[in-house]
Write a protein that binds this DNA or RNA. Sequence first.
DNA 1: AGAGGCTTCCAAAGCGCTTTGGCTATTTTG
DNA 2: CAAAATAGCCAAAGCGCTTTGGAAGCCTCT
Lengths: 340, 340
Amino acid sequence: MNLKQLSHMLSLSQTTVSRALNGYPEVNEETRRRVMDAAKRHGYRPNPSARRLATGKSGMIGYVLPTGAAVDIDPHFVEFLSGLGDYARAHELDLVLSPADADDEETTYRRIVANRQVDAVYLSSPRPADKRLALVNTLGIPFLVHGRSEGFDFDYPYLDIDNEGAFHEASRLLIQLGHKRLALINGNDRETFAIHRERGMRRALAASGLTLGERHIRSVAMTEENGYRAARRLLEEDERPTAIVCSSLIMALGVVRAVRDLGLAIPGDLSLVAHDDVFPWLRPENFPVPLSTTRSSIRLAGARVAERLAARISGLEEGARGEVWPVDLVVRGSVAGAPV
Amino acid sequence: MNLKQLSHMLSLSQTTVSRALNGYPEVNEETRRRVMDAAKRHGYRPNPSARRLATGKSGMIGYVLPTGAAVDIDPHFVEFLSGLGDYARAHELDLVLSPADADDEETTYRRIVANRQVDAVYLSSPRPADKRLALVNTLGIPFLVHGRSEGFDFDYPYLDIDNEGAFHEASRLLIQLGHKRLALINGNDRETFAIHRERGMRRALAASGLTLGERHIRSVAMTEENGYRAARRLLEEDERPTAIVCSSLIMALGVVRAVRDLGLAIPGDLSLVAHDDVFPWLRPENFPVPLSTTRSSIRLAGARVAERLAARISGLEEGARGEVWPVDLVVRGSVAGAPV
DNA sequence: AGAGGCTTCCAAAGCGCTTTGGCTATTTTG
DNA sequence: CAAAATAGCCAAAGCGCTTTGGAAGCCTCT
């Protein structure tokens, strides 16, 4: 059933039927009802390929997926996807993943824009002065950044959590508990979120006249193994830290293992706080010692990104609105006063 | 730059240019070269929307993503995606994720097929007599199943690992080490992979005159917490098992925690084997006691699925070919002889 | 020399939608 | 009451490709 058949069957022109269906004003309300009715009754669905060719709109949102033998997709991605899907489903928005060589994402961005494959894209894990962001901004396709970049002379729309505030609060708590030697096990410090977290922590320390020594900060890919290694190096020092703030639950697994291996105890010898993106399959309250966390559901963020993207596509949202979500600090058994 | 301009510039018809570019035989080789040349020089890329409208082919593969508040996307998915992307990138194949209500995926399948949004789809986590499989089979779109189903009167193309063989081997090893009370912490036993794993284990036990008691098998969603709970229940019994085989590394984390909480030791009191899908961020060799595993890279599977899907789209692969990959049994410190 | 067969190309007709420009009534306005 | 505005509809022209159904030119064969 296509438009031609439908319009013929209604003794109307394709123009009128098309307009009736798409809510244009220049059609009599009664005619519109007739058309709508017939369309529903016959299960008419406009052919998206044809519509796309005519309008240039695809009804899909895009994401360029960096791939390559050395590239690991962040496990957070799947949770984010869940959220995105939750919203997108209700609006029949599909998501197109365009795999790209991690060393040359530009080609792919250019391709999907030139081909008008998607109506909007979102970027994640931005770095300061991220090239992708500049590119997508000049290409003129609607976009939204999950996270933030820095160092541009233009503004852009984004959704981020208050990483700096979160780690500031976590650090402040630890300091108030008497800790003086804090350490940070961070994610890749070329990504903005990691920079913000470090900044938050330094700010809290500075406020109490403390500092974060070079040796007390590790910046690594967020795997269990890296968490372990980082923790061991930190804890085997002479003046070992009495509190660690850690950028992910997965790394925290490694930290816990290291603490055990060294015969230390949480929170007796070491207080630990980690950031929790809220995975259904790994929960901080189920750590050997329930883990204090800075918590923010990445899944909710995914849903919100989809929502805003949809709004941008339909023109409801414009401009460079930035949105920063507060982060909960959830205190559980893994923090205590500094050992004497 | 579109076809019209290009052909005009070459003083050829659109027909000829189109044919030259698409490798049709009825065009002079020299003309073809001229055309190819000009196309490359001017960076001509056929508009996919137009091509799609004309041919019905989209150059994308599809996946219906079950979503909903109660639905958690499997973290394995992202690794699978990595692999898929590795292959797809080289072939400019995009992946479209169509979110669907987990309780009604059928509508979405019908939509993407009716709309010809994708050239092929893949299904994952199939169950016995999975409705999606039957649906997709009748809808007539090329497809590939990652995993296997059972109980159909038709064959279908799939890629699966030898789950039964893997758990058979793991169990056999444990039995040979003198274990008599084995337990299984499995995934959702409505999914085929879990059924196969249980079958493999039972087969190994039966071969030695042993059985798997009802109380010695747990079937749960694969989270750390569920692993913990299942292990506790198993280990708090009077006649507790001396060996556990576990369907995922994430659950194994919980098992390890439970063992610790109960004051037991691995492998002294309990031998443990888990299935490892090979995550970059959680490796069995880094468990407190290095974990023995049945190992199969889900990432490689993703790449292979993409490859076969591409072959199916282009007609290079046909019929209902099933492909079953062997699974490695990797022995590490977590298994030992049965306690006396 | 004429019939038949290749080779190489083309004009035009789709694919199924949206949108432009225009046309005919009907209503409003000065 | 004539002129202007408005409401409601339509034919046709795209969107940029692929593909059908020739057609022209040149060989080959009998």
